[in-house]
Design a protein around this nucleic acid. Structure first.
Lengths: 65, 65
DNA sequence: TATGAATACCAATTCAAC
DNA sequence: GTTGAATTGGTATTCATA
């Protein structure tokens, strides 16, 4: 179900540094949610998540709530 | 000079809805700063700007400080 | 160091299919 | 309405040049 996946996504990006949608899709798969990048992209939009510069000025970006 | 361009970028995204780096590059060109997307990308990183969902839930994203 | 052109990489959308 | 495969769109980086 989409809603439980959404909750899992929030949790994942809260406690993990996720830099790409592919990476998030992998994590979800590990957690039993089989989805592809396309779905992750839609989820991110629906959840209004953002990709922001990492706290340390490493130049990297991560997804965040 | 890079610093004045940076200031201009801040100003532009503050008062305009900029959805892509190409768009920002165009605006800069109009203002007399001739740059390409590659440079805009670097500027955005150096300025720690972010691309966030638009206030209205249109699904669009815009650059912001 | 700063930059552009080209490219590689990442994300959003289309188009079916369910 | 939801999804994946493929494609398109958008961004970051490489590589060369100044």
């Amino acid at each position: 179900m989409k809603n439980s996946r959404h909750k899992k996504i929030i949790e994942i990006i809260k406690y993990n540094v996720i830099e790409t949608q592919e990476e998030l899709a992998e994590k979800l798969n590990e957690e039993g949610f089989q989805v592809t990048q396309a779905t992750v992209s839609r989820d991110i939009k629906q959840l209004n998540l953002v990709k922001i510069p990492a706290e340390d000025n490493s130049g990297r970006q991560r997804y965040a709530v």
